[in-house]
């Protein structure tokens, strides 16, 4: 039987929790499954929880970046949450700062971000409170 990472659907969002050590094939399977699911359910947001992921290499890093870009093409926002300090340091040392990926501390703030970006698209209410107070 082939190993798979489950993809859960919550409303408009897809939730992926990586709880095993990722190997290359698993990452590619996830990439396949996730893109298929996004177009199937017309998802607007993808949340990838990697808080249990302890080992990461350049391939996994690149795959994460690819998944985010693919999701963007399919009109879904991706947020990666719960990266461990050791994983973050490893990725930085590998020279992968993953500029295209949106990150959050935990699932809660990740969901918050998705709700903000997905429900109010193109509103641009990011920086309106800059110069009002001094």
């Amino acid at each position: 039987m082939m190993e798979r990472i489950p993809i859960l659907r919550i409303g408009n969002y897809l939730l992926v929790t990586i709880q095993v050590d990722m190997h290359d094939k698993l990452a590619l399977t996830l990439q396949d499954d996730l893109t298929t699911r996004i177009s199937e359910v017309n998802a607007k947001g993808v949340l990838i929880d990697i808080s249990s992921l302890e080992i990461v290499d350049s391939f996994i890093g690149r795959t994460l970046a690819n998944i985010a870009s693919m999701a963007r093409v399919l009109d879904a926002h991706t947020v990666v949450v719960g990266m461990q300090p050791a994983v973050a340091i490893t990725l930085v040392e590998l020279g992968m700062s993953l500029p295209g990926i949106r990150t959050a501390l935990n699932v809660e703030s990740g969901m918050e971000y998705l709700r903000e970006t997905v429900t109010s698209p193109e509103e641009g209410d990011d920086d309106n409170g800059d110069s009002t107070e001094d």
Partner: peptide
Amino acid sequence: LKTITAARLMGA
């Protein structure tokens, strides 16, 4: 810069 990038990766 590395520290800042790593913190960003974690969502801070």
